[in-house]
Simulated scan of single mutants.
Amino acid sequence: MKKLSAEQQALLEQLKQVAQGLGETLAPFCEVVVHDLLHPKQAILAIHNNLSGRQVGDPATELGIARIADPEFPQVIANYANQFTDGRQAKSTSIGIKDSSGRYVAALCMNVDLTLFRGLQNALNQFGSVGSAAGVNESLDPAGAEAIRRRIDQFAARLATTPRSLKAQERRALMRELKESGCMEVRRAMEIVAQHLGVSRASVYSYAK
């Protein structure tokens, strides 16, 4: 492994402290990752609020490789569209860190899971609704995947949580509600539910029993 200079080592150590502070401040909505761009095959030095499933020692991303190859690569790329491996939409910001020679040493990356904010928005909408029948008479077309996702979001909102944070007993109640509403008649309904909850199809089948 390439030996770091004292300056480069200090930059990485300080960046790890910055990442820890950001991670604690932005938890649980934002993943914060420190990349060592001098060792791209084992680039990830630290990861906080792990939303992507990556681990310390994992390799650099395509963006990291691009920075390594080009010292003129933009130092800050903010709020660009990204996607986790399971399809969740994300908003990302990447900040490159250079040493005194102008070489990229590291990168600080932040990835926001937008599905968490969609769940939070639904919870706020539920909280702000008025009338005893708010939400009860809404008619959702059970013919498509989006109808299932909307109903799951609404169920989670009533519990002031997100679909991926539902507990086992809440998931069982959700499955009963989906079945009663006719949503489970949709083609590939089990797969749609599993993806939106972030669980396996086998788990969904067990909750449906």
Rank of each mutant, 00 (worst) to 15 (best):
I97Q: 02
V56S: 06
A69H: 04
A123V: 09
A160T: 09
E170Q: 13
G128L: 15
V112H: 05
V56H: 02
Q121K: 12
A173H: 13
A27E: 03
L108K: 06
V136G: 01
L108M: 07
V136T: 02
G96K: 00
I44P: 09
K3A: 15
A81Y: 04
R88M: 03
N50K: 05
N79D: 08
L114P: 03
T162W: 02
N111P: 08
S165I: 00
M175K: 02
D58L: 04
H35C: 13
K41W: 09
V136F: 11
R164Q: 14
A173P: 03
R150S: 13
A168R: 10
D36W: 01
L51A: 11
R67Q: 00
A90P: 14
K2P: 14
E138L: 11
R171F: 14
A157M: 12
R103Y: 07
E138C: 14
E185T: 14
T93W: 08
Q75K: 01
S165A: 10
A60Y: 04
G102R: 11
A145D: 06
I95R: 12
L174E: 04
A69F: 00
R67S: 03
Q17Y: 06
D141A: 08
A66M: 03
P59S: 04
Q83V: 14
H48P: 07
V33S: 04
A6C: 10
R176P: 07
V105N: 05
L37H: 12
C183L: 10
G102K: 11
Y80N: 00
E72I: 01
Q169F: 09
I68Y: 00
A147R: 04
A134T: 06
Y80D: 02
G96H: 07
A78C: 02
E7A: 04
L174T: 01
I192C: 06
S206W: 10
E138V: 15
L178C: 08
L120P: 04
Y104G: 03
Q121H: 05
L15H: 01
G57L: 14
L197H: 03
R176M: 06
K2S: 10
T162M: 10
S5Y: 08
Y207P: 07
E180A: 15
R187A: 07
E31W: 10
L124Y: 02
S101T: 15
F155V: 12
R150G: 06
M175A: 12
R151L: 14
E7N: 01
A173G: 13
A160P: 02
I44E: 10
D70N: 01
K41V: 06
H35W: 13
P142F: 00
G144F: 10
T25N: 08
I44Q: 09
V130L: 08
A168Q: 00
R188P: 01
F155H: 12
S132N: 08
G21V: 10
A78Y: 00
R54C: 15
N79P: 01
H35M: 07
A81M: 07
V76G: 05
V33R: 06
G96I: 05
A19M: 11
E7Y: 02
Q20D: 12
K167E: 14
R172Q: 15
A168P: 06
R118I: 08
T162N: 13
E191K: 12
K98H: 12
L116E: 14
L45I: 01
G182E: 09
Q75H: 01
Q8H: 09
L11D: 02
A160S: 07
N111E: 04
E185W: 05
A123N: 03
G102V: 11
S139E: 15
L197A: 05
R103G: 06
S52T: 11
S94C: 00
